[in-house]
């Protein structure tokens, strides 16, 4: 009677072992070690940094959250100082809590925003993705505090049908401006 359980269990076990081996092999082959050397990080990101903070050089990575890729919504994940200001990266929750929007904000020495770029965004095309429009993002340049209804800061026109995503970016930029102000205080 007991023997009839042996074969099914054995077969299942073998299948699992074989598949696990295949997965391990694939993982080894596709593994890309995360870049941890600050100099390397800065080198990789230099173009993006220059885009949001024009005319900047001498990037110094002040802080970067561990396990950068996967976490932290509503938080500053990276701070970089440059010759004429700072660059802050913020993760912000848009439509989907599982996929935060990664916002790169350049802040000049006077505390005003010089540029905003969305590094990683996976919202619904036609709705949330519409925030990834250079003309929309240009609204932030020159200001120091923003809100969708114009009450607590410079008014930003939200994107129709992308309220959550617009709000996410606005929150991110506000957070970045605050973080930049702190950075400047630390430097002095």
């Amino acid at each position: 009677m007991k023997f009839k359980y042996v074969k099914p269990t054995l077969v299942l076990l073998i299948i699992c072992v074989v598949i696990s081996a295949a997965l391990a092999a694939t993982y080894r082959l596709t593994y890309v070690p995360p870049v941890t050397d600050p100099a390397q990080i800065v080198a990789l990101m230099a173009d993006d940094y220059a885009e949001v903070l024009p005319g900047s050089t001498d990037y110094v990575l002040v802080e970067r959250t561990e396990g950068y890729e996967k976490l932290a919504r509503g938080a500053v994940v990276e701070r970089v100082t440059a010759s004429n200001g700072c660059i802050v990266t913020v993760h912000s929750s848009g439509q989907y809590d599982s996929d935060p929007i990664r916002v790169l904000v350049g802040v000049g020495a006077d505390g005003a925003v010089t540029g905003v770029k969305l590094l990683k965004i996976s919202e619904t095309p036609g709705m949330g993705m519409k925030t990834n429009n250079p003309r929309w993002l240009a609204q932030f340049v020159g200001g120091t505090s923003f809100s969708l209804d114009g009450r607590t800061g410079a008014g930003i026109d939200g994107v129709t049908s992308a309220t959550k995503s617009s709000r996410a970016v606005v929150n991110a930029v506000n957070m970045a401006v605050e973080a930049a102000a702190e950075l400047r205080k630390e430097a002095n």
Partner: peptide, 30 residues
């Protein structure tokens, strides 16, 4: 002919999940 009737669903799902994970890993990289 090798997979016994009793465990065919777990076996199928394990195999399918294996392939999906492979696709996922490769896609994440390339």
């Amino acid at each position: 002919r090798v997979i016994p009737k009793e465990v065919r669903l777990p076996a199928f799902i394990t195999i399918i999940a294996g392939f999906v994970t492979i696709v996922s890993l490769v896609m994440q990289r390339y």
